[in-house]
Design a protein around this nucleic acid. Structure first.
Lengths: 334, 334
DNA sequence: CTGTTAGCGCTTTCAC
DNA sequence: GTGAAAGCGCTAACAG
């Protein structure tokens, strides 16, 4: 079913059908109606692909992700809510599982779709972003600094400091850090916040207590295990994201440790999964859905050529649940 | 940056570049290497759009949704996990906010993308599905019966019966039903399960207690309010999905009712949001991620031409949290 | 007002 | 082994 079928059925040329579809001037009312009737009758819808190849305006916004995991899907919900009245449609593209390992998925996806299919793109946690893209781009939680494309992120530094101070306030001094993807600026800032809070409390960072996690359950597995089987293990762990925090809790439990009695764990992100975990995870909340909504608004403005402040940073907040506990004032035997 | 640019830089024709990209025979090793070098150097990626228009095989699976809400995004997570080793990429398409109201978004999206962009599609809670599509289609939680395309769903009837029996077991007899989208078979089955459980307990259904909710918070608002302000209100409500269950709890709280002390509420789906609600929602779990994974596997087989049982029904299970409570044996004053 | 024509970027015969 | 040419479904000049 193509525009040609419609044209033939209506007894006009494809050009005329195209004009009717796109509400261009220069079509007689009678012709227009007849064509419209045929379109309705046949249930014809123009191919987004063919149209985009030619016209370079599609009314579709792309969301480019490495994978559909809790963070990106949460963002998607926020974007979806915000898109409602804009007239845009949404196309979320994941370069398949391979992308997790393969760097440069952002550029690849952008090249594959950017030329024609989408009018603008939201890049979710991209590592590298070529500043001179063909289409407007907004990056959420990117690696880039203030240069590069417009960005939306949250206050990772303050959030990490809050997390660490919270643990400190609970009497913990041996606090482990399970870091995030090293290629992400947010992960770097979270580690920095951890170090700042410790320094402010006059506690030296024990290098043994600092591990690189990642952002996937299986990647967090080994470093979490190492951390918890140390000769002098931490009494609390700050994991740089909820997924690795949840995995840390599971590893602790496999090791016979009770959370929070024997080990306190705090995460970062506040993805819905953090509430489903047993015990429910105490974490630093990012306003993920709001970040998505803001990224979309920013991008829509960009596509429309509206000037905007190019960087938006949203606040984080502590969400207390049940995975952290005050350290007993005197450890038995000490 | 097009294939033409690569061809010019490498000093060959576009046809040759195309052959190199697609690993076709008939290219000299030296030429192939030279072209490959240019591709790498320029960072060229072929346009999915242009390629798909011509070749009709893209290695991309489409997931067509009305909206990115908790159910569809949960499904997306399951699909994303399952796609990892298949070599397919994922393209989730939402017809924008308008779709919620507009019926037929499934057909429209399918027509727009199906011709060329995607090799197969997973339709999420579609209402109408034209059986003779151009590409393989799997429907998740569809309206259709056993005819129509292959489907994946959960045992809605048994789940609804379980939910109602659970409330009955807690001593409730005035149990309200906040139904789901009337155009969904799953909603019909959930109501049916409710009726069956009540009948089995020898309780007549009070028509006042049966309301049509929908699947969006604001749609559930009014019927929930009506239900709770009845002269003789229910002591428990079975909402046909978590989103309207959560909204019911909020409405109850606005009305000064405590949940679960004054009102028990049970949902259906077990989306992550149900655990975040206050109090955490007792609900009937569908294995949503697994449903997504199975739908993907089914579709991949379909695309590959493998024969399969066309309908898969997964079991549901009660998840007890804190929104339901045993009814006091004797109501005060009665 | 309407139809013819020329591409968009790519793949695919089919000559050379 | 390589390139010229046709065409996927559509839109955008331009003639008629």
């Amino acid at each position: 079913m193509t525009i040609g079928d419609v044209a033939r059925t209506a007894g006009v040329s494809v050009a005329t059908v195209s004009k009717v579809i796109n509400a261009r001037y220069g079509v007689a009312a009678a012709t227009s109606r007849r064509v419209q009737d045929v379109i309705d009758e046949l249930g014809y819808e123009s191919s987004l692909v063919a149209r985009s190849l030619r016209s370079h305006r599609t009314n579709v916004i792309g969301i480019l992700v490495a994978e559909f995991e809790p963070f990106s899907t949460e963002l998607l919900k926020g974007i979806s809510e915000a898109v409602a009245d804009t007239g845009y449609e949404l196309l979320a593209y994941s370069a398949g599982g391979r992308a997790g390992r393969e760097v440069g998925w952002e550029q690849r996806s952008l090249s594959r779709l950017g030329g024609t299919l989408i009018d603008g793109a939201i890049l979710v946690t991209p590592t590298v972003v070529d500043p001179h893209e063909g289409i407007p781009v907004v990056a959420v939680d990117p690696h880039t600094g203030p240069s590069g494309p417009p960005t939306v992120d949250s206050d990772n530094l303050a959030g990490a400091r809050t997390a660490t101070e919270y643990l400190l306030g609970l009497g913990h001094t041996r606090i482990g850090l399970l870091g995030g993807r090293p290629d992400l600026e947010s992960a770097r800032l979270r580690e920095e916040g951890y170090r700042q809070a410790l320094a402010a409390a006059g506690i030296a960072v024990d290098p043994d207590l600092v591990r690189v996690g990642g952002y996937k359950p299986d990647v967090a597995d080994q470093p979490a295990h190492e951390l918890l089987t140390l000769p002098e293990p931490p009494t609390a762990v700050f994991a740089a994201n909820d997924i690795s925090a949840i995995r840390t809790i599971e590893v602790a439990q496999e090791l016979g440790l009770r959370v929070p009695e024997d080990l306190s764990v705090i995460g970062f992100d506040n993805v819905p999964e953090s509430a489903l975990c047993v015990p429910p995870l105490t974490t630093i909340a990012q306003p993920i859905r709001q970040m998505g909504a803001e990224a979309l608004r920013m991008l829509v403005d960009l596509v429309a050529g509206v000037e905007r402040e190019p960087h938006l940073r949203l606040p984080t907040a502590l969400v207390e649940r049940e995975s952290c506990r005050r350290l007993d004032p005197v450890a038995p035997g000490s």
